[in-house]
Amino acid sequence: MQSSPTVSPLSDVVTGNRSRAQRRLRSVGRAFALTVVILLCLLPVWYLLSTSFMTRDQFFQPDVQWYPDPFTLENFRRAFRIVPLDRYAWNTLQIELVVVPATLISASMVAYAFARLRWPGRDKLFLVLLATLMLPPQVTLIPLYVIFRHLGWIDTWIPLMLPAFLGGNPFYIFLIRQFMKGIPAELSDAARLDGAGELRVFWSIILPLCKPVLAAVAIFTFIATWNDFFNPLVYLQSEAKKTFALGLSSFTSQYGTDVTALLAATTLGVLPPILLFAFALRYFVEGITFSGTKG
């Protein structure tokens, strides 16, 4: 695989100066590896989707069943009868309606202080903020449970919502702060000279420019809240208050045998994050990670 030491033009960076046969061999190998990876990623998803529309009889056939035949919606009907999936979904959406806006506002306020204001101790405290990313949540879990219990907040959504008002996940503060640092200082300085207060600079100048990162944070927050299992498990008890993720687990423990209904419910459960992600794909730091236009 030794390439000759002649100067290669930039376009040759990928392949070097290898012979044609070597290049073809390599690209075939690459295509093969990619196919395997994609199959491993998609096969379980296809299995989930197709089984959701299968009859139980077909599901328990001894061979692999590649697609539903006959096609049925019966699994979804049964899933809704076994557990109140619509109630779970509506509960989660109500929590999202509070958590997502609260996270956006509180995290961008904190990010603003770290990115655009100068004050003593700022950089050291920012390191502290980054360090809290590494703090395992189970250490604070028991005291938080005790506190919330004293306040009468067990089996309410307050413990799930409160962190969103207090900056949310430090990682989101970090993301927004990085984005805000990229906005030229002259913009806010000019507004300040024109007599704008700090709140106005934040709200009318900086925040509108942060739309891309705020969209990304909103989506991450929505998905993380939708998928969260641990916190609802600890804090919620009554059926009427459960989130979708938590409700699904009671499905498995009580009705573990109705497999196709369980998979139908799972399909419904993964749909919101996937739809949201697909819808918002263009917001995801265009060019950097997904679109691949930058080489």
């Binding site: 993720a245 687990s249 992600f277």
Partner: peptide, 14 residues
């Protein structure tokens, strides 16, 4: 994008 519970439900069958 699959949350832990959903991976678990799917894995219990796969």
């Amino acid at each position: 994008l699959f949350g832990g519970v959903f991976v678990a439900a799917l894995a219990s069958q796969v």
